[in-house]
Nucleic acid binder design. Structure first.
Lengths: 336, 336
DNA sequence: CTCAATTACGCAAACGGTTTCGTAAATAAA
DNA sequence: TTTATTTACGAAACCGTTTGCGTAATTGAG
């Protein structure tokens, strides 16, 4: 119960705390014999140095923060795995925070990091985030931030994203090539860069085809409401014949709406979604997806952060990594 | 760049650090006027107290650890949300660790907690964990541990699980009632209590029906290998006509195997799975599931932990909460 | 054998808050 | 007016490690 500190060891071994500390850090000024005595007792007493005392003294916490909109989504689950894998390897600890897509929460969370709680931050901004003073404020105090997936364009920092414009283009073009001429784009935000880039790709593809109509539907965080709105849209006489779902969770919304309307996928409507769902190929019908390398993105983002933590060179701070997404064609967009 | 500490404030306001500290904690021995001066400067300088200095002095970290096998799974994703929601409300921080189903990793992670890094632990044990000395060792030093979902039976602690025996029973009985007579049970471990309880429920249900054969297949962490093994089993002349999938990730394995063998679900084989997949109802065919209240379990586990942290009463340490799972019948088990 | 260089360790000051105790000044009671 | 209280703050120890500096003892060089 009475916890063991460096002093406990010092007393038992009749050494000074400083000596113990040096022995533990394998300092050259401590004899091999003493080191062994120390290590033996450490093992016997299950002594583990208090990280907070150490952090205080060294001004390093050996921990990073991961700030996410939520973790319901497959993408973020996989990303966390990637992040954790490199953090564990580097001996860092990972604090996790969810903004639940709220800007004010994101602000409050980041503000706390002015305390020195973490050495660096991995951030994917909330849907509501339109300005990034809170991020810049943190950077100005010397805390490195790496943005991933949902990045803020006006922040200069390490960034890891996928080729969102191209993916949006490819996804849309795939629908066009399969005969769609009225394609809806389901979005979760009209401020998020990731959303806009995908949409720009969508528009670019559309612009290359004549005789098509487009429409963009902005979804909320209310699944039932989204289904209702989409049903209304899809229930019209001149309804869309293709849907580009720009974010994973809306894929279910789209299927749900079509199912309730009795619309056949891909017969009546073709659906393609940005998604990391492991079950995509098992859906009814199997879902054509644009898949992001989520685990890899987490790894890359974490690696980038650790590189800037290890070197004091601010060079890597500006590095932007863009990974390719992959289009996997399945039944939901199959021609005729 | 040069970070602001309590001394910075003290100097600028010509007060002592102690006074600042008290003002910040709204001590009654500081005048309202002084408090206001302090708060104003705090806000102006973006001052946030160093949590490690505070932790050191108060011997409390205001952070908990969540130790999970992995986070690929929907169950754990949802549980994390539940945990985070109550942690955020209580002003606690959440460290996340993944064992990747390795016992040695679990040991190493828990051992670190002898350092005082966290005030309490939420743990779901790895598939490999068969003894729990590492958990008991931690408890013996006064660190509260709450086990959830995958609990260790020989540990006396707070526990949150679902009614696994009953669920296994209900799931199996559901298959039996729909005509299955040769039901396979897919398991990921024969040491995990959660797995065994579900299996015991399965056996109990079987025992109530005559003329049935049973078999248990232990799966690995290699999805491809599992599919192969399951295909071998399902490819026999006298193949099973029902599958109880005892853990989410194997549901995909089961579908995959059946699909590759050209077996019709539910015609040739009926499948029921313990799963929190949001896409269960969209699968082909839609999947009958036993769903755990994952978010709620996370919340309950966290709440239980916080209760034991707040009160010094060890009473709650022994509390066991068992929540009901719900059976949702879909096409994958529909009769004839 | 003397003096310089190592070697191996102790001392004490940080790191940034928290908290107990003491006390001067202001206020109240007598 | 004198004494007892209260108010509002300062001083300093403390939490557990780290680390620069000092030094006794051992070793080496000349």
């Amino acid at each position: 119960m009475n916890h063991v500190t460096i002093k406990t060891l010092a007393k038992q071994l009749k050494l000074s705390p400083g000596t113990i500390s040096k022995a533990l850090r394998d300092s050259h000024e401590i004899s091999a014999a003493t080191k062994k005595r120390v290590l033996d007792l450490v093992h016997k007493l299950n002594y583990v140095p208090n990280p907070y005392a150490s952090s205080l003294r060294k001004r390093k916490s050996k921990t990073i923060a991961v700030v996410l909109p939520e973790v319901a989504d497959s993408f973020f689950s996989l990303a966390i795995n990637g992040i954790e894998s490199v953090a564990q390897e580097k001996g860092y600890h990972v604090l996790i925070y969810l903004t639940h897509e709220k800007f004010t929460k994101e602000q409050a969370i980041l503000e706390d990091f002015n305390s020195g709680r973490v050495d660096g931050i991995l951030l994917s901004i909330s849907r509501e985030t339109t300005n990034s003073r809170h991020i810049q404020q943190l950077q100005s105090t010397g805390v490195p931030v790496v943005l991933f997936d949902r990045v803020a364009e006006d922040v200069v920092s390490g960034k890891v994203t996928t080729d969102d414009f191209d993916s949006g283009y490819k996804a849309t073009r795939h629908l066009l090539e399969n005969g769609c001429r009225h394609i809806v784009f389901l979005s979760i935000s009209n401020s998020l860069a990731i959303s806009n880039k995908r949409m720009q790709g969508y528009k670019k593809a559309l612009s290359e085809y004549p005789n098509q109509t487009s429409s963009v539907m902005l979804c909320s965080d209310n699944a039932a409401g989204d289904v209702k709105a989409l049903k209304k849209l899809m229930g019209k006489k001149k309804r869309p014949d293709g849907i580009v779902v720009s974010v994973e969770k809306l894929a279910i919304t789209a299927y749900h709406a079509c199912q309730e309307l009795g619309l056949n996928i891909p017969g009546d409507v073709k659906v393609i979604a940005f998604s990391n769902l492991a079950t995509a190929f098992l859906l009814n019908p199997s879902l054509t997806t644009v898949t992001q390398p989520a685990f890899e993105m987490g790894k890359r983002a974490a690696s980038l952060l650790f590189r800037t933590l290890e070197k004091k060179g601010d060079a890597s701070l500006r590095e932007t990594i863009i990974l390719p997404s992959t289009l996997t064609i399945r039944q939901s967009t199959s021609g005729a």
